[in-house]
Design a protein around this nucleic acid. Structure first.
Length: 412
DNA sequence: TCTGGGGTCCTAGGACCC
DNA sequence: TCTGGGGTCCTAGGACCC
C-alpha cells in the first residue's frame, strides 16, 4: 500500500435528553417545565371538555411519588433543579417536588430510535448501535448527499481498489474535516426532519474522542475534534469523562492525586499498571493520550438476554414463597417471549438475587443443548435458585439466558 | 428517601484435556 | 510421589455503560 492511511472520521451522535424529548412531542404543554421520566405508574389523567372537546391533562408530580423507581431522564430545566438520571425518584422529590413525573414508555422510545437511526443510515450506512439513543458513525468514506449540487467529488469508496489514482485519493486532511462537518450538519437535519428531535454530534479521529466531544456543545451541538486538540480540549477534563472510567476507578485516581486526563497522561505507564493491573493500567495510559483504534462495528449478536424486577417491598423466601414463585414463573415466561421474538435460544441459564442490603449473587447452569421455552428456562433457573443463599430478604429477582445461538423458524 | 432494568466486558479459579 | 506447560469451558463477582 502506497501513501499514508487517510485520517479516520468517526462520529458520535447522542440524542438530547431522549426519553424526555420524545414525551414533549406528545405533551407540548410541558415545554419549558422541569420534567422527569421514571417509574411505571402515573400516566397523565385526561379529561375532555364536553362542550369544546378540548383535552386537559393532569400530570403527576415528583412530590406525589411513592416507590423505588429512579429517574431515567430529566429535561434540561429539571437538571437545573439538581435532578438527573439514575437518581432515586424519592430523592428527587425532596429536591423538586413540583417537577412533572412521566412514566417510561419504552415502546415509544424504541420507535423513535428506529426513526433516527434509519435517517442516519440514509446518509452514512456504517453505524454502530450504542444503546437506544446513541450511535457511532464511520464517516471516513461517507459523502454528502448530492441533492442540488452537480459534479460532486468522486467518493473515496468508489476510488478504492486497483483503479485508484493519485489524483482521486488526494483529498487533503483539511478537506476531510470540512467534509465531516458538512456531513454532521446533514445528519442533524435528517434526524430533526425524521423525528422532530435534536441531537448532538461530534466528529473525531476515533470513538473515544468522539464520545467525549459529543458532550461539549449539548444540546443541539456540533463539534469537530482533531488529534491536535487533545491537550487543550481533553486534558483539562476529569478522568471520569472517559467511557470506561467509572466511579471506582475515578475515586482511586483521585486518591492518587490524578484529577485530570492530562495528569493521567503524564503518569508513568508502569506505575499505572502496578496500581490498576496490566491491562487496565496500559489502557488508562492509551486513552489519556486520546488513542483508540477500535473499529465501528456495524453488526453484532447479543451475548445474553435477561429479565429482572425489583419488588415494591423486600420479600422473604419463606413467608412470601407463593408470591416469589409467581413472579419467578412470570419472569421466565417474559424471557421466553423475548427469546422467541428475537430468534435466540441459549445454553446457559442464570438467576440473580439482590438482597435487602443491596448485595447481589448470581448462579449459573449450563445445559448440553440450547433452550428457548418458558418451562425449560423455569426448570433450569429453579436449579440455580436452589444453590443460592435465601436467608436475607430479597429486593430483586432476575433470570438470564446466555451462550446464545440464533434459531431459525421464529418470527422477529 | 437509599439505589431500575437492560446489557457488555474483565478477572480469577477450578476442571479437564493434550 | 514430583512436577510441567497451554487451551478451553464453566462459574461467580464486579465494574461499567445507557
Amino acid at each position: 500500500m502506497a501513501g499514508v492511511a487517510p485520517v479516520r472520521l468517526i462520529a458520535h451522535l447522542d440524542m438530547d435528553a431522549f426519553y424526555a424529548s420524545v414525551e414533549l412531542l406528545r405533551y407540548p404543554e410541558l415545554r419549558g417545565l422541569p420534567v422527569v421520566i421514571g417509574g411505571h405508574r402515573h400516566p397523565p389523567e385526561e379529561s375532555v371538555d364536553p362542550h369544546t372537546g378540548a383535552v386537559t391533562r393532569k400530570f403527576a408530580t415528583l412530590g406525589d411519588y411513592v416507590g423505588r423507581g429512579v429517574a431515567t431522564t430529566a429535561t434540561y430545566e429539571a437538571r437545573r433543579l439538581g435532578l438527573h438520571s439514575a437518581q432515586g425518584l424519592m430523592k428527587g422529590a425532596a429536591l423538586a417536588p413540583q417537577a412533572i413525573l412521566l412514566p417510561v414508555d419504552f415502546d415509544r422510545y424504541r420507535h423513535f430510535s428506529r426513526l433516527f437511526k434509519d435517517a442516519v443510515r440514509g446518509i452514512a450506512p456504517r453505524i454502530e448501535d450504542h444503546g437506544i439513543d446513541e450511535i457511532f458513525i464511520d464517516l471516513t468514506d461517507a459523502q454528502l448527499p448530492t441533492t442540488g449540487r452537480d459534479g460532486a467529488a468522486p467518493t473515496a469508496a468508489a476510488c478504492e481498489g486497483p483503479f485508484e489514482t493519485a489524483a482521486m485519493s488526494a483529498e487533503s486532511e483539511i478537506d476531510a474535516w470540512w467534509r465531516a462537518r458538512d456531513l454532521a450538519k446533514a445528519l442533524k437535519a435528517a434526524v430533526l426532519e425524521a423525528t422532530g428531535l435534536t441531537c448532538s454530534i461530534a466528529v473525531a479521529p476515533n470513538k473515544l474522542l468522539a464520545k467525549i466531544a459529543s458532550e461539549f456543545d449539548k444540546p443541539d451541538g456540533l463539534t469537530v475534534l482533531k488529534a491536535a486538540d487533545v491537550p487543550t480540549r481533553i486534558w483539562p477534563l476529569p478522568p471520569r469523562r472517559i467511557n470506561g472510567i467509572g466511579p471506582k476507578a475515578s475515586a482511586k485516581l483521585d486518591a492518587l492525586g490524578i484529577t485530570s486526563i492530562g495528569a493521567l497522561a503524564q503518569a508513568d505507564v508502569a506505575w499505572l499498571m502496578a496500581r490498576f493491573g496490566r491491562n487496565y493500567g496500559a489502557w488508562l495510559h492509551r486513552v489519556a493520550h486520546g488513542e483508540d483504534d477500535r473499529e465501528v462495528v456495524t453488526d453484532s449478536e447479543p451475548v445474553s438476554i435477561s429479565r429482572e424486577t425489583t419488588f415494591e417491598r423486600d420479600l422473604s423466601a419463606q413467608r412470601d414463597r407463593d408470591q416469589l414463585a409467581a413472579i419467578f414463573t412470570e419472569l421466565c415466561a417474559s424471557l421466553a417471549d423475548d427469546l422467541v421474538r428475537k430468534g435466540y435460544a441459549g445454553r446457559t441459564v442464570g438467576v440473580k438475587l439482590r438482597f435487602d442490603n443491596f448485595t447481589t449473587v448470581t448462579r449459573d447452569h449450563t445445559l448440553a443443548v440450547p433452550i428457548q421455552d418458558a418451562r425449560a428456562i423455569r426448570h433450569a433457573a429453579g436449579l440455580c435458585l436452589k444453590r443460592a443463599p435465601l436467608a436475607r430478604r430479597i429486593r430483586l429477582l432476575g433470570v438470564r439466558v446466555a451462550s446464545l445461538t440464533p434459531v431459525a423458524g421464529t418470527r422477529g
